[in-house]
């Protein structure tokens, strides 16, 4: 940091890269063509199934579609789920 930058406002990232990042995220959703309604239904179903085996924190549950690097260096959409477990249920074998 040089002397003068001390007086400047803390610089935000340039809007060009903000635009790019926002677009990338929007397009992940657009491309999988998955409405928020479908995502909500999926969430309910996942809770239902997992609750058979473990008690989960439904408030903290986070499900979203994002993307990851594929083998050929492109990107593929992934379903990302973060499900905090409170405790295991006893399941009969």
């Amino acid at each position: 940091m040089d002397f003068f930058s001390f007086f400047k406002k803390k610089s935000a990232p340039p809007s060009g890269s903000v635009a790019k990042d926002r677009l990338k995220l929007v397009l992940v959703h657009d491309r999988v063509n998955c409405s928020s309604q479908v995502l909500e239904m999926l969430k309910t179903d996942i809770i239902k199934v997992i609750s058979n085996y473990m008690e989960i924190d439904e408030e903290e549950l986070d499900i979203q579609i994002s993307q990851t690097q594929s083998e050929d260096n492109g990107t593929v959409p992934v379903l990302y789920a973060n499900i905090p477990i409170k405790s295991m249920r006893k399941v009969q074998d």
Binding site: P14, S15, G16, S17, A19, K20, K24, G74
Partner: peptide, 19 residues
């Protein structure tokens, strides 16, 4: 001018996004 200041997406940004 905007691209040089980073205030507009550049050619690579757009082609990368649209592939």
């Amino acid at each position: 001018d905007l691209v040089q200041r980073g205030e507009m997406m550049n050619i690579d940004d757009v082609t990368e996004i649209l592939a």
